[in-house]
Design a protein around this nucleic acid. Structure first.
Length: 281
DNA sequence: AGTCAAACCTGGGCGC
DNA sequence: TGCGCCCAGGTTTGAC
């Protein structure tokens, strides 16, 4: 599920509900979602600590706590992390509950269990297991058109695969890669070294635009994703190709229909009229 | 070194 | 109703 816009939405919500609050206790229902962290170690490290900040890098959340610890969270495909102050019991597949002093709690729930949490000393966030292979964030100033050009230069790999490689560019997943390629008019079977300088600049602008719009819409809810307040996002209503196989391309003057192909075992959606292969191959 | 398919885990939806 | 198959937003592993 959650790509950069979804994780950023959760970050913003939790920044409002969690920063400055004190953690009373943490309940771990399933400890195999902890990465390089012992349950007891986690319980002892967070109890009585305040949450100082909620940051994000790529699809990862970084919760800094008083006392020099940081809690890293990755939501995998189906993970949820949300604040609630209702009386309800935690739903099925809830793996961790962070109880706040006063009232309220933060629930970590993940049906498919591809997500994980890791506790690290705050000085070792960058070289933690969770973050050490995470590259430039796609919404950071470091992600320039020049960076993208350099990232793609001279490579024969599928462009789509390169854009999904979190160690080079962090934050894009299958949905937003499909959407960005559509907006840039680039065929999903293009290879990295097929792109001209102009293609790279259009692609860079398209990536930035689609991520910004999706953040403004609080992310895309297709099945599991909810915001940091436990409600769905709305960008699913604005997707132009993802999940729209067989529907007409919405661009004025285009008579084509959205197609689905499979690349590296993942679905790719595109408009065969609007998206070009860039260079003869 | 670079590239890419398969595996990890679970649930939902579909056809039979 | 039930079974089997296919599908899913991510990341890692290992084979070529």
């Amino acid at each position: 599920m959650p790509e950069l816009p979804e994780v950023e939405t959760i970050r913003r919500d939790l920044e409002q509900t969690l920063v400055g609050r004190t953690i009373e206790a943490i309940t771990i229902h399933r400890d195999d979602i902890l990465r390089e962290t012992e349950p007891r170690e986690l319980r002892e490290a967070v109890a009585g600590r305040a949450c100082r900040s909620v940051r994000r890098r790529g699809k990862n959340l970084i919760l800094r706590l008083s006392g020099g610890a940081a809690l890293l969270v990755h939501l995998g495909m189906s993970g949820q992390l949300y604040f609630t102050d209702g009386p309800e019991e935690p739903p099925d597949h809830t793996h961790v509950v962070v109880e706040l002093s006063g009232e309220g709690r933060v629930v970590f729930r993940d049906v498919r269990r591809f997500g994980h949490m890791e506790l690290v000393p705050s000085g070792r966030v960058a070289d933690s297991s969770t973050l050490r292979n995470v590259g430039i964030d796609a919404m950071s100033d470091e992600f320039s058109a020049d960076y993208l050009a350099q990232m793609l230069e001279g490579r024969s790999a599928l462009l789509k695969g390169a854009l999904l490689d979190q160690s080079r560019l962090a934050g894009l997943g299958n949905i937003y890669v499909c959407e960005a390629l559509y907006r840039a008019g680039i065929h999903p079977e293009a290879r990295c070294n097929d792109l001209s300088g102009g293609d790279v600049r259009r692609l860079h602008a398209a990536i930035h635009a689609v991520l910004a719009e999706a953040i403004a819409a609080e992310g895309t809810t297709i099945s599991d994703y909810v915001t940091g307040n436990g409600v769905p996002g709305s960008f699913q209503d604005r997707l132009r190709v993802y999940g729209r196989e067989g529907e007409p391309c919405g661009r004025d003057g285009c008579e084509h229909t959205i197609e689905r192909i499979v690349q590296s075992n993942r679905s790719t959606y595109f408009c065969p009229g609007c998206q070009r292969r860039c260079r003869a191959r």
